[in-house]
Write a protein that binds this DNA or RNA. Structure first.
Lengths: 127, 127
DNA sequence: TTTGTTAATGCAACCCAGTTGCGTTATCTT
DNA sequence: AAGATAACGCAACTGGGTTGCATTAACAAA
């Protein structure tokens, strides 16, 4: 697959993730851009950007899909094994650039892992 | 809340989790017990058993709800911070009785965390 | 710069895990 | 045995996400 054509939807969506490690839920993107683009289009563009290694996705605490910009991923392999932090006060989710020490598990082969940490972000701790 | 009456649905569901750390998805429970009990009942009983500290829940890779028996939890506080392992071949999910070393995150207060590890279980590695 | 190909889009209908409202049934209390 | 009410079944609903298909627009070739 992969993104082939530089369409307006691709451009606008890429712009949403322009320069931060903040994650955005598909739901929110549809709320924000739903008047300009059909939700089907948004879902499909996100899918493709993930296939291309431009974005990575994970599930928030409600099981809804979140996306964030990749760091060093390719279309062939996703390397975003970093944990994600979801603030329970403001809802903000971002990528943590730390590696997780997975526990040793005998007799099993680990292929993927996802760690979601929840709590209060710096902003919400202060106020 | 909490489970107050010992009904047949409660009895049967508790029996499903009787003596193992294997997790079962709500979906599968409905498939198995749906002829005997309404799905609404199953969802509600699971909810209450979780409130009571008898079961704990987490989300599988598709964002669907899984339940497993608690170990040392109370109605007041859930202590099941252990990771869960989901086999990508056979679908089996179980609780890992190891503690996870969370990464140090400055300026944030950690309240919850969930770690889902995916791969191949022992059974599926052999065959 | 026009033309042809086909990827991308919009729309409507759909899927399905989980929820809600409400009238009925069954458990527990007195 | 009788009354209170928790638990249940049913049907309708919710909402994130998907699918099929006809239309539109991006790109390549001429």
């Amino acid at each position: 697959m992969g993104v082939i054509r530089k369409t307006k939807a691709v451009e606008v969506l890429l712009n949403e993730f322009s320069n931060s490690t903040v994650a955005i839920s598909a739901k929110k993107l549809i709320e924000q851009l739903g008047t300009s683009f059909n939700k089907t289009t948004i879902y499909r563009v996100l899918d493709k950007l993930e296939d291309d290694g431009v974005l990575h996705s994970f599930l928030g605490k409600e099981g809804h899909k979140w996306y964030a910009k990749c760091n060093g991923c390719t279309a062939v392999e996703h390397q975003d094994l970093h944990p994600h932090f979801q603030c329970l006060s403001c809802g903000r989710v971002d990528c943590l650039s730390v590696s997780v020490a997975l526990p040793k598990i005998p007799n099993r082969k680990i292929e993927f892992s996802q760690l979601l940490i929840q709590g209060k972000c710096e902003e919400c701790l202060v106020h």
